[in-house]
Simulated scan of single mutants.
Amino acid sequence: MRKMKMLVAAVMLAVLVAGCSSAGGSKDITLAYVAWDSEIASTYVVKEVLEQKLGYKVEMLQVDAGPMWAGVSDGSADGIVAAWLPSTHASYADKYKGQYEDLGANLEGTKTGLVVPAYMDIKSIEDLNDTTGPELDYKIIGIEPGAGLMMASEKALDEYGLRDKWTLLESSSAAMSQELQKAYDNKEPIVVTGWTPHWMFAKMDLKYLDDPKNVYGGAEQIHTIVRKGLKEDKAEAYAFLDKFNWTPDDMAKVMVAIQGGETPEAAAKAWVEGNAELVDAWLK
Score class of each variant (00 low, 15 high):
3 K>S: 11
3 K>W: 15
3 K>H: 12
4 M>I: 13
7 L>G: 00
8 V>C: 06
10 A>I: 09
11 V>G: 01
13 L>R: 02
16 L>N: 02
22 S>L: 13
22 S>E: 08
24 G>Y: 13
26 S>P: 00
28 D>T: 08
32 A>P: 00
32 A>Q: 03
34 V>H: 01
36 W>G: 08
39 E>A: 12
39 E>S: 09
42 S>R: 10
43 T>M: 12
44 Y>G: 01
44 Y>C: 02
47 K>I: 04
48 E>F: 03
52 Q>I: 01
52 Q>Y: 05
52 Q>V: 02
55 G>F: 08
57 K>F: 07
61 L>K: 11
63 V>C: 01
67 P>V: 06
67 P>K: 11
67 P>M: 15
74 D>Y: 06
77 A>W: 12
77 A>Q: 06
78 D>S: 05
81 V>Y: 12
81 V>C: 13
82 A>Y: 06
83 A>D: 09
83 A>S: 15
88 T>L: 11
88 T>R: 10
89 H>I: 08
91 S>T: 05
98 G>C: 09
98 G>D: 06
98 G>P: 00
101 E>N: 03
102 D>R: 03
102 D>V: 05
102 D>I: 04
103 L>C: 06
103 L>V: 03
108 E>L: 10
109 G>R: 07
113 G>Y: 10
116 V>H: 02
117 P>G: 09
121 D>T: 08
124 S>D: 07
129 N>V: 07
129 N>M: 05
131 T>V: 14
139 K>N: 09
141 I>G: 00
146 G>A: 12
157 L>W: 04
158 D>Q: 10
159 E>G: 01
164 D>P: 01
164 D>H: 03
164 D>F: 05
164 D>W: 01
165 K>P: 00
167 T>L: 09
167 T>H: 03
179 E>K: 13
181 Q>M: 09
182 K>W: 11
183 A>E: 02
185 D>P: 00
186 N>C: 02
187 K>T: 07
195 W>R: 09
195 W>M: 14
198 H>N: 15
199 W>D: 09
199 W>L: 08
201 F>A: 07
202 A>M: 10
205 D>S: 14
205 D>E: 15
208 Y>V: 02
213 K>D: 13
213 K>A: 15
213 K>V: 12
215 V>H: 12
215 V>C: 13
216 Y>I: 07
217 G>K: 14
217 G>D: 12
218 G>N: 13
221 Q>F: 14
234 K>R: 11
235 A>M: 06
238 Y>F: 15
242 D>N: 14
243 K>P: 00
244 F>V: 02
245 N>L: 13
246 W>I: 06
251 M>R: 08
252 A>H: 01
252 A>K: 04
255 M>W: 07
259 Q>G: 04
265 E>G: 07
265 E>M: 05
267 A>L: 10
268 A>C: 05
269 K>F: 04
271 W>V: 00
274 G>Y: 05
274 G>K: 03
275 N>G: 08
277 E>W: 04
